[in-house]
Design a protein around this nucleic acid. Structure first.
Lengths: 217, 217, 217, 217
DNA sequence: AATGCTCCAGCTGAGC
DNA sequence: GCTCAGCTGGAGCATT
């Protein structure tokens, strides 16, 4: 249709314009569909902003996701802005000095050491490791089972630093049954307005003395 | 300067144009300065993308930051995309059903319960709480001391779920002495290219069976 | 497919994500097609930037297009930036004072008077070419003098194609005295709404048989 | 202030963040000032959208402005979208075939020939107004016929201000036969680079004494 | 007044 | 290395 052999430039121009307008129509239509989908999700109780973040992250590989989260956490931690959240394990891995020199390339270092706590980080001393070491996949199923059994998210038995902890969390979240079909509040934003002049400024509790003030010299 | 009393509309137009051009000049200049600052930071080894995220987050209150991170983590967990990171504590708080009904408004619920593990979430059973309960601020100082003493980030003694764990992390990160003045690799991106066809797709270890495939019906 | 009756919130989230990803795919695809079409047009020798402008203008009604061009020309003329182009006729119509008071609404005034040159602008004293050829700078001063003498913008004596015509226009616009200090209507937009279903679609009068319809094969 | 010699990376990070936040503040402030200036202009009766266009055009050299306007007019004419405006003279110059081959570079061709009507376009047979008033549609067909007969764009017989002039132009452009099937140069941009420090700044010829200088008080 | 939409400038990633 | 086009975020406008 938009192929032109020995046509005059006028016909070519018209043809291009028509092509472009037709395609532009389709583009607008696609954009509208997207917009409506977000609207439906919003009506259904999900937070559009978070959904956008999720979509963007889904375009990355797991490794890239982890790296990004780790970097952000490291920078925030250094500035005292973790607001009460512990560092993700990937961040710990990056911060652990011994492994730095030789981990300059990605592949050699296993992104996470599921097993063999002896030689590297996971759970140094206090964290009594589960007597029998388990695979994260197994932990995930345990999490799913726990969710179905009505357990709480706090009942995750794995200690910080153990990959099974994350796996259990994921399983719990994925299988979690909400009572009925209402969307739990956990999925929705509570703060809508930036409270102008704070009041929850106190924040982390951990931040005492750590956070850098805006106007600090 | 750009005030006009009984001036002709021509003079007013000229005046407006001149004002706008002058201000536009200043705006461009400011934008350039910003750009250069990012460039300097990049040359210094910091990741510009992460810095941008940090700047954006710094415009929020700690409470808003925590909420955002929690929401994202919850959505990601449900989709099996945590990639090996455990849920942040704020997410756990939101997911814990008992507190849902009555925490519909922000203020009544203390954003995080540093103390009194008896009545709510923190570390239900396994997590043997440090015998003497400490304040996060104290834990932060411990973290700083640990960093100066050359301890590793894995030496954080507090268990998952304890706010002191985060506080210790922050202290450690803030005081951490790099050997010399080089920027540790932890602060820099390693993956530059989306490897097209993966290879680190395996990802989380926890994701087995959890992640939703792109084309899944 | 993406309809959910009494489904769990987990299924709903997954469903929303899948919808969004599918639609996002379509959106990207549409954007790519558009991009390629522009590329083809460029390879064919057309200027992409101009094509974009044309596409944008084609989304307006002829009346809106004319208004926009007239406003721009008027502002530019007043700033001496016509660069040798004469004012478009629509701009002259706007600048002609007698019709200002009663043309506050668009429809009453026929966008352009094709016929009956007796009562309004077209071709005043049919362009006796100045016997002595003048420099544009001189013509500009004549325009300024004419404006101060209360002449109308239609009194420009120079014929089409003569650079002096543009120069006279610029001079007239720059010196023009509005009665008092109010801003003439010529400087403000009249159409706010795209009248949805036209009515001024008829447009140019010249377009008869010329304009390409949106859906034309 | 933001210079760091042998400082720790932590201090450097903090320093960068502070720099960036300070500069960001300034940037926001500049943007706000700009916004307010537009607001004032709007309150004063000027059209913000048009002002933006004017500001953008003022960043171009007169030659670039003319080229852009000419290109847009040519494309629009060919699509029958001139909406009653005649082609600007620069567009005529570009469309006039004899000068095409040797005007491939900008400078040799004087942007506009103010004097000496003998050798080039201006005012061919000085516009004897058609004795019988015609409809634009008819004029359009005349233009088409003229184009097919090999007439030049300058042969448009209608005077400035006559809607038929625009109609004739449109007809001519739409039917114009390029020699063979190559795209005439008139459709392509000639200036690619903003010549940094001008030289075609002289511009309009009409602008003498009219254009407002950037830094004028 | 608050929301949603549209537009635009600024930034990021390719391409020469 | 620089330029360029596409894209995202933010601002303005119109609306309810």
């Amino acid at each position: 249709m938009s192929e032109f052999g020995a046509t005059s430039h006028h016909e070519r121009l018209v043809s291009h314009i028509q092509d472009l307008e037709r395609l532009d129509e389709l583009k607008s239509l696609a954009a509208d569909n997207m917009k409506e989908a977000f609207q439906r999700a919003k009506v259904d109780g999900f937070d559009p902003q978070t959904l956008r973040v999720v979509l963007r992250l889904r375009k990355l590989t797991p490794g890239q996701r982890r790296e990004r989260r780790a970097l952000e956490a490291i920078y925030l931690a250094e500035l005292g802005m973790l607001d009460g959240d512990a560092l993700p394990d990937e961040a710990r891995r990056r911060l652990d000095p011994p492994s730095e020199p030789d981990r300059s390339t990605e592949p050699p270092a296993e992104p996470h050491q599921p097993r063999d706590p002896a030689l590297t980080p996971p759970a140094p001393k206090p964290a009594q490791p589960p007597l029998v070491l388990k695979e994260p996949a197994e932990a995930r199923q345990e999490g799913e089972a726990a969710a179905e059994a009505g357990k709480r998210i706090y009942d995750n038995p794995y200690p910080a630093g153990d990959p099974c902890r994350a796996a259990w969390d994921e399983g719990w979240c994925a299988k979690r049954q909400s009572n009925g079909m209402d969307l739990p509040e956990a999925y929705q934003r509570r703060t809508t307005k930036p409270p102008e002049k704070d009041g929850d400024q106190k924040g982390t509790g951990a931040g005492s003395g750590g956070a850098i003030e805006k106007g600090a010299a």
